[in-house]
Design a protein around this nucleic acid. Structure first.
Lengths: 127, 127
DNA sequence: ATAATATATTCATGAAAACGAATATAAGCA
DNA sequence: TGCTTATATTCGTTTTCATGAATATATTAT
């Protein structure tokens, strides 16, 4: 039972966003999306995870209002609502003693030749 | 059992820092410390929490290398190791739709007349 | 209508985190 | 030395989160 705790509303709001980011899996997802957008099967291919596992984390990021989704036929694309989230991750990387350029490089992902999603292999859609 | 997950080392490091911040209680502590330093009894007074509860969160923040402590006689003072943490919280506040000036104001706490710690009431030590 | 593909959601289980209560430790005072 | 004050730490319990497995839903193709 939570008693004798007086936490201002703002602490809870700030903590909620940071809590959503406090997961290696979700950080990896955000890096994979970067400044563009990515569909679920693209993220599956890039990250090598089970689809259901990925979807659960996407759900958490949507709930935290970090990700925005849009449907295109069968495909659902995700993008980061506010690029400031990437700056936040970058700054945290710096704080954690990591090379922020790694974050910068990852935030601009390129199409992956091994991926068969509409983004990486648009020619497959025409067939 | 964690299987089929390929999380780069950097995601884990970033997430670890954000995980430590993903708690309303610890955000409140950081706000109370701000740019200066604060002793435990000061934080007790300001936040109105049980001492043991507060100490547990201080322990978590020390473990995450966010806080630095120094002992002065019976008193232990805490300061935020890197002011960039405050910038991080401020940016998160902005992202969460909060007024960042609230964070700025809180990051420069003033002595509290109701507090009897050496910082707020140095004259009590002389007695 | 059915099957295939893409993806979300739910539920059960296990692990991690949060919290209360009790206790231990350190420093200063009488 | 013993007491007081300041604070850390440990342990048990509860709550929350993470994950796997199964299943549901939406769209397109046949």
């Amino acid at each position: 039972m939570k008693t004798n705790i007086s936490i201002p509303q703002f602490s809870e709001k700030i903590a909620a966003t940071l809590q959503a980011l406090g997961s290696p899996a979700r950080i990896a997802i955000l890096m994979a999306i970067g400044r563009g957008e990515a569909c679920v099967c693209h993220l599956e291919s890039i990250l090598g995870w089970r689809q259901a596992y990925l979807s659960q984390h996407l759900m958490a990021l949507r709930k935290a209002e970090i990700l925005q989704d849009r449907r295109d036929g069968r495909y659902i694309y995700y993008r980061i609502k506010n690029e400031a989230i990437l700056a936040l991750v970058r700054d945290t990387a710096t704080l954690s003693g990591l090379d922020p350029q790694i974050v910068d490089a990852l935030a601009n992902p390129q199409p992956d030749s091994a991926c068969e999603c509409p983004y990486c292999a648009p020619e497959l859609i025409q067939l």
